[in-house]
Design a protein around this nucleic acid. Structure first.
Lengths: 339, 339
DNA sequence: AGGCAAGATGACACCGGTTACCATTCCATC
DNA sequence: GATGGAATGGTAACCGGTGTCATCTTGCCT
């Protein structure tokens, strides 16, 4: 082996005086191997600092060890949490994580995803919301021969390889908390149409109201895009109602921050004049003033579980997994009327 | 070719009636090829939907097309911005982005990085601050045969393959703005020791004061960790000084949010009683109240440039690139004394 | 002692590309 | 008409692993 070149399986075989097939057996922990041989080869491997070439392996095995993360998500915290979760699972394996942010509004979205998967010959892919809610994309990935796992906010019609939270229930509990605090006029800011999570959270909100015998007045409801600005606009609408709400549930934290700005600009104090609850527990939630009461869902754990499903061919992996969310009670939601 | 199998170069060769070598020439756009032959082969490729196997290519070429992003960064926005920037550059190439978050406090950090690079046989890696500031890690990557690019906040001793902003100058301009607003007692919250960016920002702060003929009173200076909580603690210290500052520069936005909380808990109003300037222009900056005046640096563009350096073997790529930052003037910094 | 099963190992083809090198064809030149 | 060079395309080897199957030990049973 020339200087500067990485040692190959042939070098290991030659130096330890066995065939490359035997070395291969050592690497792959084949059980039918003489202990002495194994140790000898292992010591040579250690000496040489030999690391198998993953591309050669991939070629011979006709599969590789790359998993792709495809997303179009405005929430950086969430995406990074997912990446960390996946790495928690694959760190000590031979798998690697390839990321591929896309634009869901692009007319070439499907083509873009197809190219990515085909070009890299991915072993598996993980889809994040809102992409994960599209059955056509899921089908595309499977057609391309990828194992697939989807993260979501609820059950899907096609539950296979799904890792989901239960947003509906979580929101209904958040509303129950507002009710417990004494609020009866509760505003609602929905997420964008076409998002499963937005839908679930809306249902959960209505569940919560219904459980308390309340109904939603359209005058204190608005739809947003999950972005800050849309939250601010929604807040302005709700607060300018003839009879404004004393509390409002926002379908995510970023919009909640927008509502807060709207309130401030009208000279209102939060939480004294308006209680707010958000969803996601992003960094923003803890850093705005007052700290935001919000729903936390276990992003990292869910992603880690999803990755495990992906890399373990076990049959049970096709069963969906469900996770619970917690209501994080902070200062933005207080009793009403003021005690 | 059996159903369900991907077509290979052999299939293309057989069907178009040429040798695989000729197909290879078509794929690699070799100039010495008859136009008719090329078109025939291209049409067969299109018919079959043939995509070259990247692992086989990597094996034959003795290099692959994976670039790694190694980081240990608490700022999700920044990391995601970097990922997007890299993808801007590589989207229509055969390169893919493999991410590898690490823990810089782990005793096995170097080993972890080595394993990652060796195991995946990366073509190149990109290091993000604060990892990018460590020459030993840079050397490790290079020893492993990777082309390397570092993102940073200033020139380095070893400038090669560097993409940097100029934090020092940016901060000094931010201070100049506070001075222009009339502030003379300006507090400072430093970043963690050992971070190049923290150091640069501190120097920039001192530059700014010096340019205005001011000096830093240690009573209104504190060091933080770039985390929210440390900013809050620093804020408490500064505001409890016998003579508290009328304005404070925080070395990043997250700590600025913490200072804001500290101020609020003391019953102070921002910006009426205290002006604040942060650094980074993360989402937090725009979403807290009042919106934070802060320094924005072109993350995505820088990352995109860095990726271009990585994948283009051009010699000029080894020259460092520098970028300018902007002061984003929002509501958190106002004139003093009140007009 | 002979037979045999199980365990250990090796030879060789193959995965799907690329490269080195050679062969052919077609002209232009002398 | 012989010769040489450019243009074009083919053959075989190779990259670094793994699968198949054959071979060689060895221990154990009869």
């Amino acid at each position: 082996m020339a200087e500067g070149q990485k040692p190959t399986i042939n070098d290991v075989a030659r130096i330890s005086g066995v065939s490359k097939k035997t070395v291969s057996r050592v690497i792959n922990k084949s059980p039918l191997l003489n202990q002495a041989t194994r140790e000898k080869v292992e010591s040579v491997i250690a000496d040489l600092g030999y690391v198998p070439n993953p591309q050669a392996r991939a070629l011979a095995l006709r599969r590789n060890f790359l998993i792709g993360l495809i997303h179009d998500n405005p929430n950086a915290q969430m995406v990074l949490g997912v990446q960390e979760g996946i790495l928690d699972t694959i760190r000590d394996t031979e798998f690697a994580l390839v990321v591929h942010p896309v634009n869901r509004h692009s007319p070439t979205l499907a083509e873009d995803i197809r190219r990515f998967i085909e070009q890299q010959r991915l072993y598996g892919v993980m889809l994040l919301p809102p992409l994960s809610e599209r059955d056509d994309l899921a089908e595309l990935c499977r057609d391309l021969g990828c194992t697939l796992v989807r993260m979501g906010s609820a059950r899907l019609d096609d539950d296979e390889h799904l890792v989901a939270s239960n947003d509906r229930q979580a929101v209904s509990e958040a509303v129950a908390w507002l009710v417990e605090l004494g609020h009866t006029r509760i505003g609602f800011v929905a997420g964008p149409e076409g998002f499963r999570s937005a839908n679930e959270r809306e249902q959960g909100f209505l569940d919560g109201l219904a459980a308390a015998g309340l109904t939603l007045d359209p005058a204190v409801a608005a739809r947003g895009t999950y972005r800050f600005e849309s939250g601010k606009a929604a807040g302005e609408k709700l607060l300018s109602a003839a009879e404004p709400p004393t509390a409002v549930f926002s379908s995510n934290d970023e919009m909640a921050a927008g509502i807060l700005h709207a309130a401030r600009e009208r000279g209102l104090n939060v939480p004294e004049d308006l209680s707010i609850i958000g969803f996601d527990d992003t960094a923003t939630a803890a850093h705005i003033w007052p700290p935001l009461t919000t729903v936390r869902w276990p992003i990292r754990t869910m992603a880690s579980t999803a990755a495990a499903k992906l890399i373990r061919p076990a049959s049970a992996a096709s069963e969906p997994s469900f996770f619970l969310s917690d209501l994080i009670r902070r200062a933005s939601a207080v009793p009403y009327p003021k005690p």
